[in-house]
């Protein structure tokens, strides 16, 4: 039986793990390779590394970091942040990444999804969507949540899958950093209508929140950052809880 996945996310800035609340107030949370290896040893099913560095040296430092991660970690990992071209992806996959995550660049240039899936296969193309609920619906936001669009999240997700996105990483900005639970509504809508896995992100605070997003929203995977980084929740405890509740989990 295919299991639900628990995915710690490491936001990387200048080679360090950082974490903000509601996309702001960024603070240091440790060495990404060490943290990644720790999570892998604890039973994390996958890792996501999102690079939020904004310097010219970015590409080189990210390449070195990806190689370092790939050398030390024996579970799959996704790399995202500022990826805008097929060449960017060649470099990252060549360095040892298993998947890449694209966000703003794919929205601005949807053909990128077709090109990436044709070149590397849809299994390594994760489309990240930052979404916010307002005026009665969920809309797509760009540039790390700073730019609103008038596109409905469901419409963009559907188009992205048709173009070749192999997974959707859905972050609810309303929920992110609140520890009040995942956005069950939009996660469920996407998960039940798309034929690719949906990774729920934003809002994890308790173990019950994970169970809810799997059981009620049908998410294929759940991603969280700060609760793991600050040891508010340990992955083995979370997996034990889910297992006891009857959620299919690798345990």
């Amino acid at each position: 039986m295919l299991t639900k996945r628990i995915i710690p996310c490491l936001d990387i800035k200048d080679g360090r793990t950082v974490k903000g609340v509601n996309f702001e107030n960024i603070r240091d949370a440790g060495d990404p390779v060490e943290l990644g290896a720790l999570y892998a040893a604890q039973g994390a099913d996958e890792l996501v590394f999102l690079d939020i560095t904004a310097t010219n040296e970015r590409r080189k430092t990210l390449h070195a970091l990806v190689t370092d991660i790939a050398r030390h970690i024996n579970i799959p990992f996704t790399v995202g942040g500022g990826i805008a071209a097929v060449d960017d992806v060649s470099v990252l996959l060549g360095a040892g990444a298993d998947k890449v995550s694209v966000n703003t660049a794919a929205f601005r240039n949807p053909q990128l999804l077709n090109d990436l899936s044709k070149e590397f296969g849809s299994q390594c193309v994760v489309l990240a969507i930052d979404t916010r609920f307002e005026d009665g619906d969920w809309f797509v936001y760009l540039n790390g949540g700073r730019v609103k669009t008038n596109t409905r999240t469901e419409d963009w997700a559907r188009e992205a899958v048709e173009r070749g996105a192999g997974e959707i990483l859905l972050t609810s900005m309303n929920n992110d950093g609140t520890k009040q639970g995942f956005a069950l509504d939009i996660t469920g809508r996407l998960s039940r209508s798309l034929n690719v896995p949906v990774i729920a992100s934003g809002g994890a605070g308790t173990m019950e929140h994970f169970a809810d997003v799997f059981e009620k929203a049908g998410a294929d995977a759940a991603l969280a950052a700060s609760i793991f980084h600050y040891k508010e929740m340990e992955i083995p405890d979370l997996k034990n809880y889910l297992y006891q509740r009857g959620v299919q989990i690798r345990f």
Partner: peptide, 17 residues
């Protein structure tokens, strides 16, 4: 292939026993 009336996610991505 998806069984009738059931949405199968393809590719299979993840941990299976």
């Amino acid at each position: 292939e998806s069984p009738a009336g059931n949405l199968l996610k393809i590719p299979q991505i993840g941990w299976n026993n």
